[in-house]
Design a protein around this nucleic acid. Structure first.
Lengths: 179, 179
DNA sequence: TCACATTGTTAATCTAGATGAATGCATAGA
DNA sequence: TCTATGCATTCATCTAGATTAACAATGTGA
């Protein structure tokens, strides 16, 4: 994940921002083409459905990219909000530059790996959503992101898992009782 | 989607196969690094969970790639089966070659776009699984892949949507009644 | 400091979709 | 041709998780 820095330093259009907790970096329906690389802190992306309910798509802590790849790839307005959960340090890249600037071959390959890694995470997520119970998904979440439960409120973890805060609370209670 | 052909013709290790309906191209737990590009026909990838239940991850008709990106990116044995639903024509690529062969810059960028497009599809899939009812997911599926219902049995569509064949049958009945 | 919002918990009720089983139909294979 | 296997449908039942609501504990801001 270090090679990204080469890309960043080469991209003269890259800017660094220091968003505060609660700051919104990208809104739904913006025609946006930004990619955010988190150097420090924590961001998240999420949608809001017709009933006004929030669905967290992904958390991005230090070293991760966050962006609305779907709308960017198909040149449509953003579906995802992106906001800041902790005081952060974030590199803002332009999609066009990220994909098309004069990067070296090595950097392009790195780029491909970053995208492949993101895809891999999503692949696992889809399989989990289809085949695992809420309890299993929660346990997998704890294994995969052991530090996040200390940093984000439970209602957001519930939202990430695709369940209500009440359901998560019940799952946790049952897990405690069994130990 | 045509530029892929440039990549294919350059990759001297690429082979063409002609699998028949029902033929399995990749099994779970194989340490495999193949990427399949479908020229004609129809493939699918799927997992089988602990209860023996099938979960279809993706359908790939002409012009699409299919591969277990997750296990490849993390160098682990395959989680996904890949098999053939219709007599097909398929280009078999080696992951190593696909990522690291001496492709031109343009081809590498094309490559990045193919991956980004895959990621975009998965992004939409995750959001749908989290926020939409089975009925809504079915309608979206019909919009996105209008030709597939004629080519694959309903139980597979149900599996793709993450519901049982019975539930899909009920949804369809209700939709017919309303028209 | 006091009002007020946000978070997590519990409990009662409701519902989308799962499960299990039976039936009719079509296709395939000996 | 007959038999068997897979597919779609329907129905009765069950259950994981949603919904609604009430309440305590903690933060937050004027």
């Amino acid at each position: 994940m270090e090679k990204i820095n080469e890309i960043l330093t080469l991209d003269s259009n890259a800017k660094i921002i220091y968003p505060k907790k609660g700051e919104i970096l990208q809104r739904e329906n913006e025609l946006n083409s930004k990619i955010f690389y988190v150097k420090k802190g924590l961001l998240r992306s999420f949608t809001i459905d017709e009933k006004g309910k929030e669905h967290i798509f992904i958390f991005a802590s230090a070293g991760w990219l966050i962006a609305d790849i779907e709308s960017q790839e198909f040149n449509q307005p953003t579906e995802l909000f992106i906001d800041c959960l902790e005081k952060s340090e974030v590199v803002v890249l332009d999609r066009a530059n990220f994909m098309l600037s004069n990067l070296t071959e090595i950097q392009l390959k790195q780029n491909a790996h970053l995208l492949a890694r993101r895809t891999a995470v999503l692949q696992r997520r889809v399989i989990m959503l289809m085949s695992a119970s809420a309890k299993e998904r929660y346990n997998r979440f704890l294994e995969s992101y052991p530090e996040l439960p200390n940093r984000v409120p439970q209602r957001m973890i519930a939202s990430y898992l695709g369940i209500t805060p009440q359901a998560l609370s019940t799952i946790r209670r049952k897990m405690v009782r069994k130990n």
